[in-house]
Structures are given as C-alpha cells and as structure tokens.
Design a protein around this nucleic acid. Structure first.
Lengths: 143, 143
DNA sequence: GCTTATTTGTTGCCAAGGCAGTAATATCGC
DNA sequence: GCGATATTACTGCCTTGGCAACAAATAAGC
C-alpha cells in the first residue's frame, strides 16, 4: 500500500517536474506560486504551515524564486518581523501557463476516472490523513 | 489532488519513520530489508529498478545497512560485477518486529475502511500509475 | 516599564537523493 | 579472439530538505 502511494505520487510529481523543466521550475515551486496567487498565503510562515515545509528550506526556496524574478519580498510595515510575499510581474505572467501544465498532468493521470471515482479517491485520501493525525499526533500534523 | 496524495503519503511515511526511530531505521531501509527477505531482489540493481532509486543512493543506503549489521554484501561468483545481498542474522531477527510496526501503521491509516474500499483505493492508485506510464513515458516508469 | 515567552525569518550543519563519470566485468557482433 | 557496447557498483559533486541555533521584533505576565 505504501509502495503504491509512493509510486502514484512519484508518477504525478515526476511527470509534472518533467513538464515544468522547460520553464526551469519544479512542482514545489509551482505550489508556492499557486498559493501566493490565490492569496491563501502571504508570508513564508503561512506557506510552511500549509505546505508542512521547513522554514529554512522555505527561505532558500524563496531565494531561488526571487532570483528568477518570479516573487518579490517586502518587509512588513506593521509587523516588522514578517516578510510579505507577492508575485512579481514575470511570475504573474507565467503562472497561467504553469497551471495549465499542472492541470494537464493531473487530468492525464485521472484519465478513465469517473467523477464519482475521483470523489471517492479524494475521500479515501482525506480519511487516511485524518487517521494519521488522530493516531500518530505530531508525525505529520500541523495546526 | 497532488497535495492530497502528498499529504496522505507523508502521513503514512512520517508515522512509520517515527515508529521505526527507536530501531534507528527509517521506512526506506525497511523497504529494502523487506525486499531482501522476500527474495524479490538479490542485488543493488534489482532494488534500484523496483524501488526506482538512484544507484549511487542505493550504494550509500547499503553502506549504512551493512554498517549496522543488518545486511551482508558478497561478490557474485558467476557474475563478478554484481554484489549479492543477504540479510545478516541480526537483520533476520529484527525484521519481523519491523514488519509488525509497518502493518500497524498501515492498518491505523486504513481504520474505518471496508475491504471493498481498500480494494478500490488500490485500484485507483494502480490506474493512476498506469496512466502516468502511458502518457509520460520516462518520467517515472521503468521496466 | 521591564522581563519573559513567542513568532518570524535567516544561516550553518548534516543527511540523503539525483546526476555524471569511472573501473571492472560481461555480452554481442564479427 | 577482439573490439564495441552494456551492465553493475561505486565515487564526487550538486541540490535540497530537516534540525538547531540565532537575531529581530512582537506579545504576554506582572
């Protein structure tokens, strides 16, 4: 079971990484850009909590995204600890194409799935996550 | 969807890693030991193909397992390129307990699942893997 | 107001995988 | 038999995530 999960996820991510390679990006970076565009995260700490990511790793990932001109950092004025994150113009321009690639990869992997099956799969995954949080607190849970 | 898959797998693996910590091992190492015990892999190259693992990383993982006295290496006599792998006595003794831990973690994550649901989940995952191999050859496929 | 605790971001260190290159051996073509 | 190619394992180099320690800033306790 664990092996199946790993291979399914690897197939998804490897395909996505391969498709994103021509943009010089990978799936983790796309996830960050997506969250910023949606407004579901405004700071590095937000991203770490949602993505269950190490803060040090996030700092360096943002370094890379900033260096490529896709993200801008700006020190917060009210709370001067935080660094507010925004998509740079180049990132905003590029993002739609990246999201299209992502949707294509996911759709391809779900080819032949009915709507009901997709719903069931998501339900199963959510229940597994919940079981894990209940029975192994701290292993992968966050807020 | 990709995020759900990632979190479900992370919950599984993080829980397993946490449980295996008291043995000084992790889930990847358990996978290797399991394959060796089952006889489904006899060499490093076997493990790499089945596990989709880098050969260099596998060499170093086997170094660690050998250093801990769980695995033995032996140069092949007929084909002197290969290094035959065997469980060391200590590994053979320890493995049942490790497998019990693994089964417990998986069972916990599948708590509340009916047999039919488990079958459906596995079916979905297999179909996703197959879709990925069909439509993104080379990304994560092997033999 | 002052001290303590908490949050945020950063950096150094380590672990581990991916990739490229290499040596030893084996296999195939001829 | 001999050369070209492939396979196996191994070794550096690089990237990247996790952890711990840290400084700056804020919040909480009193």
């Amino acid at each position: 079971m664990g092996q199946l999960m790993g291979r399914a996820r690897a197939s998804l991510l490897n395909s996505l990484d391969a498709e994103l390679e021509r943009f010089g990006l990978n799936s983790a970076q796309l996830t960050v850009l997506k969250h910023l565009a949606e407004g579901s995260a405004r700071t590095a700490a937000d991203l770490c909590r949602q993505h269950r990511y190490d803060t040090g790793a996030m700092t360096r990932m943002l370094d890379r995204l900033e260096k490529r001109g896709l993200v801008r950092r700006e020190r917060g004025r009210e709370d001067r600890r935080v660094v507010l994150l925004r998509l740079a113009p180049q990132g905003r321009t590029l993002l739609p194409r990246l999201l299209a690639v992502g949707a294509r990869v996911v759709d391809a992997h779900l080819g032949g799935f009915s709507t009901a099956e997709i719903g069931a799969l998501k339900d199963y995954l959510r229940r597994m996550i919940e079981n894990g949080q209940d029975r192994f607190p701290g292993s992968s849970s966050g807020s």
